[in-house]
């Protein structure tokens, strides 16, 4: 245990002077985009203008889904660790089923199949609003992404909580804390530090997978790219631009995750 002390001090010592060099890669990609626009505005500027409203949609869809995933994933993760076998069974089935079906198929289900199930149900019990139910693309896309990624995230939470030694929960309980108090003040703060890298990873994967919502009528970057290509027949330039835009978003996210990791370590 004594040997961890110098290591701790060392890292916090270097921290203030540290510069994350991967920011340069991000800046490089941004400069490349600017260069393309400045030196070859036709078609690159046109492409960027055309898909730019898709950028907001991609970010919005990803962020809203991710917030839901953080909460629902935690609930599911706790459920899988529950002492009550019914809760454990239900959450386990949920996770296993979701993990076994391709995300694209799940998105199709929520957008195409789910509304018609609701409609059928509405007709059966003759409730007009249900029978006339129409799917809102963004809503269904967010539902589909959240439903799927919450299952993945629950595994991350579960691993994080299990990595904290049992003695921590016992010490907290022996001081009279309830299960939820112990989770909130003792287990989760420690687990969150452990799971920050995989959580960041999930976020970036979710961001990339959000391109799948383009097939269920959400006008994100990818769908706008397809629309532009369909109208203008310049596939190479279009998809290069789309790829670069995603790259900016993912590289930026990765830097933010690293930054948060460093900041939370500093508190030690």
């Amino acid at each position: 245990m004594a040997s961890t002390l110098p290591v701790l001090l060392n890292t916090s010592d270097k921290k203030s002077r540290y510069f994350d060099r991967w920011w340069l890669l991000l800046i490089g990609v941004i400069l490349l985009i600017i260069g393309l626009i400045v030196f070859k505005p036709d078609p690159f500027k046109r492409i960027l203008f055309f898909v730019s409203d898709g950028i907001g949609v991609t970010i919005y869809t990803t962020l809203v889904s991710f917030v839901i995933v953080l909460i629902f994933g935690l609930i599911t993760g706790l459920g899988r660790l529950s002492k009550i076998s019914i809760i454990r069974a239900v959450t386990t089935i949920y996770v296993e089923v979701v993990r076994g079906i391709p995300l694209l198929v799940q998105l199709m289900f929520w957008y195409f199949a789910f509304p018609s199930i609701i409609q059928g149900l509405g007709e059966m019990i003759s409730i007009e609003t249900l029978a006339k139910y129409r799917a809102n693309p963004i809503f269904m896309a967010i539902l589909g992404l959240s439903f799927c990624y919450s299952a993945y995230m629950s595994e991350v939470y579960r691993a994080g909580i299990q990595s904290i030694s049992r003695g921590q929960m016992e010490a907290a309980r022996s001081l009279g804390m309830t299960y939820f108090q112990a989770m909130r003040f003792v287990i989760l703060p420690q687990a969150l530090r452990v799971i920050l890298p995989p959580v960041g990873n999930e976020f970036i994967t979710l961001l990339k997978d959000s391109s799948l919502v383009s097939v269920v009528a959400v006008a994100d970057i990818t769908r706008r790219g397809r629309e532009f290509m369909a109208a203008n027949f310049i596939p190479v330039d279009t998809w290069v631009m789309v790829a670069l835009l995603y790259l900016v978003l993912t590289l930026f996210s990765a830097r933010i995750v690293t930054w948060i990791e460093r900041k939370t370590k500093l508190e030690r």
């Binding site: 003695g167 010490a171 001081l175 804390m177 108090q181 003040f185 003792v186 508190e267």
Partner: peptide, 24 residues
């Protein structure tokens, strides 16, 4: 406990005050 089981993310003072404020 044999393994102390202090809360490593809290300093000594916080280790001593946490349950006092939350439970007591």
């Amino acid at each position: 406990f044999q393994q102390f089981n202090l809360f490593p993310h809290l300093n000594v003072l916080e280790n001593l005050t946490l349950a006092q404020t939350v439970v007591r």
